[in-house]
């Protein structure tokens, strides 16, 4: 009887944990998709790797080639990215809340960080 209860409890807890993990992964996935969309729409044309991307070109001059590309830069936290997005930086114009929301910025940073893990 006790053994049966223990088993039932184990199964229940495992199911709850899996569901929770699944929900968390789904939320993470949604965030990454959103971050990717924000990046593609607003950032990629200047900050993608390779020639023809003004932001990458300037960051290579200012910060060196290692930090020239945004994707994979885990040193860029939400606060810093938000400050640059909202305030602009030298050539980069500011982006308004009507273009990019604060939640968009958080998703963008997650996307930038996660891409490094995929490398």
């Amino acid at each position: 009887m006790n053994e049966g209860r223990r088993m039932l409890r184990f199964v229940t807890l495992t199911a709850v944990a899996l569901a929770s993990a699944h929900a968390s992964l789904a939320a993470e996935d949604t965030d990454l998709k959103r971050g990717k969309a924000v990046y593609q729409e607003n950032c990629a044309a200047c900050h993608d790797p390779g020639p023809g991307h003004p932001g990458t070109q300037m960051l290579a001059v200012k910060k060196g080639k290692e930090l020239a590309v945004l994707i994979g830069r885990t040193d860029l936290g939400v606060d810093l990215v938000r400050a640059v997005v909202r305030g602009g930086l030298i050539e980069m114009p500011p982006f308004r809340p009507s273009e990019v929301s604060d939640a968009d910025i958080e998703a963008l940073v997650k996307f930038i960080h996660t891409k490094r893990d995929e490398k």
Binding site: C46, P54, V61
Partner: peptide, 11 residues
């Protein structure tokens, strides 16, 4: 947005 690489000319 490649043309805006021009902004790096003076910087």
């Amino acid at each position: 947005l490649t043309e805006f690489g021009l902004l790096n000319w003076v910087g």
